[in-house]
Design a protein around this nucleic acid. Sequence first.
DNA 1: TATGAATGAGGGTTCATTCAT
DNA 2: CATGAATGAACCCTCATTCAT
Lengths: 182, 182, 182, 182
Amino acid sequence: MRADAKRNRDRILTAAIEAFATEGLSVPVHEIARRAGVGTGTVSRHFPTKESLYDAIILHRLEQLVDRARSLAEAEEPSTAFFEFFKYMADAGATDHGLADALGGGGYDVAASAERTGYDVMGGMRDLLTAAQRAGAVRDDVDVVDVKALMTGCLARERGATDAAARSRMIEIVCTGLRAHR
Amino acid sequence: MRADAKRNRDRILTAAIEAFATEGLSVPVHEIARRAGVGTGTVSRHFPTKESLYDAIILHRLEQLVDRARSLAEAEEPSTAFFEFFKYMADAGATDHGLADALGGGGYDVAASAERTGYDVMGGMRDLLTAAQRAGAVRDDVDVVDVKALMTGCLARERGATDAAARSRMIEIVCTGLRAHR
Amino acid sequence: MRADAKRNRDRILTAAIEAFATEGLSVPVHEIARRAGVGTGTVSRHFPTKESLYDAIILHRLEQLVDRARSLAEAEEPSTAFFEFFKYMADAGATDHGLADALGGGGYDVAASAERTGYDVMGGMRDLLTAAQRAGAVRDDVDVVDVKALMTGCLARERGATDAAARSRMIEIVCTGLRAHR
Amino acid sequence: MRADAKRNRDRILTAAIEAFATEGLSVPVHEIARRAGVGTGTVSRHFPTKESLYDAIILHRLEQLVDRARSLAEAEEPSTAFFEFFKYMADAGATDHGLADALGGGGYDVAASAERTGYDVMGGMRDLLTAAQRAGAVRDDVDVVDVKALMTGCLARERGATDAAARSRMIEIVCTGLRAHR
DNA sequence: TATGAATGAGGGTTCATTCAT
DNA sequence: CATGAATGAACCCTCATTCAT
């Protein structure tokens, strides 16, 4: 890829991350192009559809998340791994509203994206969850959809602002609720 | 207001409640008019903007919620009142996608609406929360924004489907997390 | 249908017939709206897609053609009926370039249109052709696709101008060629 | 012209001939460049506009046709020359959608092209026609525009497919019609 | 008052042409 | 000279709102 193309691609991604975070998924492609200082056609060249642009944006994040899930699964005990991942994910979403939208289901289908992009965050979460349940650390009746919804709640807490203390509190509340009662 | 105007207004509201619940906030006004069996102009006459229609719709719900908050506050112990209200609200949102959008922040601002409509659901929730905290039933560090976000999580769980068991589970998890530890 | 809607619909059709004839099928909907003196949304209201507008335009003509084919089949001898219909169709196309495009295949599929609209001009032509062949008036090896292509040739003769003498000549040439040799 | 420039020019022409023949005049320049294995800018360098590329493409064909017309005029009797040329042209157009578009008037003006390129196919055809008419082999009232339109009809027959039998039949029909009645 | 037709800005996407690399 | 990224006008279509009927 040529240097100028790479530069524009990066500018578009930067602009799109910010625009999606600020305005939500409904931000016009035109607006993203404007923020990036490029023509609309340039956006389309790099990302043929709006959805593909969105894919690309969260791809970065999803990759990080999947990697984190994997390394936690290898390095930590099941219980620690699961709760650490939950926290990691909540922290990631708190500083990236585009990701929060994706994880929170705001007009975006992470599952479908997983097939397209190959980064199956929810699959990673499911593995960690199952292991934690086998280890007796998490309620047996919980499924990954529950966890995703609880994550949505945590991410919803800060929408628009950043409040690390509130985030910790939310995570604590949710994780306490998730833990198996003796 | 003339009798026929009143009747049309009610039909529009009924249609809109169902339409918003079914299709979400993005349902076209045209579709609401169609379901109500009136012209689009009639919708606009009664509700100058789509947002004002949405206001009116959740007004019903918000009114119910505020009433419920009040009666629980009067009839029950603080702890019971708060957790019952949380459950009541989650149940209400689960069967009303429009309300869920409103409570979950999907393109709608409940706080602003509270000022416009006079029904301050979050205020009611805040009173119940504070009372429950004074009674030692809920963590002291939690605020009403946390509760709203946790509600968002519960509502997100069923988005599109209806799964009463999952809803109970979610409520249980969240409420367990909210409870003060000894 | 309301009077103003009917009027606009007619103006759109008139403008579209002329626009398609002048500019071809590629004329923008916007241009048709401009010529009709209406907004683009009005065109879309009456004709949801550009194709549906085109359908509607030739619908008039196709209906006339199908009727003509039927009445000739009933009233005339097979030979006369076929050749008269060919002439009728060529005359119709000569004064309606939109129809000429449709019959000549310029980016429009009459067969598909026949299914949508129910006016199967080529079916009518086929019946007349077959009857004329049975009567020994037309070469046995000719099929309706040949006839359609020959029609395209006749219509191509006047594209843009109107020259009745040339049209007669073309029809004569083609029909002479179609006749069975002794 | 440098050798590599010449080579690219030829590759573009080859690709364009095939692309226009396959997809018609609406094929994107980008696609032609792709088939030629060059950049779009290279296409534009050699052929500043898409139309100029199209000119160049049919130039090949027109040259062949003009040559053929000339050699037939010299080698054959007027009647044979004319009808042979008609057949030759129909055969050429049948296997070259781009040429068919040009000869059939599909968004391309052969007459204007004749002035630009210097290859006056219709002039050649006119000479053959006139000679054949003088020899009493073709109807006196026919002009070259008629012949072109009849050619359009023949070419329309096979649009998209290839059916040599149908082509022969069409040519036979048309030429029969063109012949002078005693 | 009710209607629904009219509006036209705005949406995403395509593509001939230009120009920096 | 070759490249292909950048451009932005133009395409068709949707829909909240307005207004003539």
